[in-house]
Amino acid sequence: MTLPARITLRTVTSLLVISLLAFAVISAMPSDPVAIAIRAWNLPPDGATVAGLRSQWGLDRPFLERYGAWLARFVRGDWGLSFRTGEPVLAEFLQRLPLTMTMALSGLALAPLLAVPLGFLAALRPSGWIDRATRGLAVFVQAVPSIWLGLILLYVLGVQLRWIRPFTRDWNGLILPVALIALHSLAVLTRVYRRDLLDVTRQPFFRTALAKGLTRAGALWRHGHAHALYAMISAFRAEASWAVGSTAALEVLFGLPGIGQFLVESIAARDYPVLQAYVMVVAAWLLVLNAGVALCLAWLGPSRP
């Protein structure tokens, strides 16, 4: 079986297993969505109301029957109706997901593009100012919560300098969230790339390359880049997971109508169809990214020293 076929099979199997586990965990969450709805909506707490909601939401059916029905509908594009809003979950996601994905993907895409030149320059002159600056940046973004940094940047760039308009509903409003995601990933990826480049400088073949007349920059690029890229792409996986979590917090901070705020309210309401759909979307996002990374690593693999 070819590598892409193996990865596809693994991804689909993983999604199925995750869907079943998520369905079980979400169903077992403390607090009953019917009881929550009755309280939140001031419904009469009588047996008829409870039975009516349980039947309407399919909660009166056995677990496996519910799961089977959900899965059959889900793969056909019917993600059910939100308990809380009564609207189709897929429509709610399609309204919000593009914003969330644009934010996360733009931030993640920007980071490696900048990390390679910065990491390269840092490795070219260890302890030079670029090296020191990227080290400082890495420590800073790891130590400071992105929410806090977001507030500071909002105040300085949006209020004091008015260089950006952080609360508009166009691309302006995405600059800071994307920059914050990119900054976090950039700091991490730059240090990983730089570290693995420097590993190469301690190898005998690197000294040979220098002896043959290659410049340090030329030797680093020719013999170290692929190796360092390999490590950086591995680290990218962790950053993709981090971005999933951070988008929710940044959406709340910047008042962006993405999936984050919707999720927060849906957790509180135990809105099973929305929570299940969110788990599936995040799982798919991570599995697809992992698959992409695995393919990249396979492609780069033979050129590792």
């Binding site: 507030l151 909002l154 105040y155 949006g158 209020v159 008015r162 308009r165 952080p166 609360f167 508009t168 709340v252 901070l253 910047f254 008042g255 705020q261 927060v264």
Partner: peptide
């Protein structure tokens, strides 16, 4: 009409001329 879950963000949006 927009909801701001964070009171500081609401303040900053006003100061930034967005509200």
């Amino acid at each position: 009409y927009r909801k701001f879950a964070d009171a500081q963000a609401l303040t900053l949006a006003l100061e930034a001329g967005e509200l």
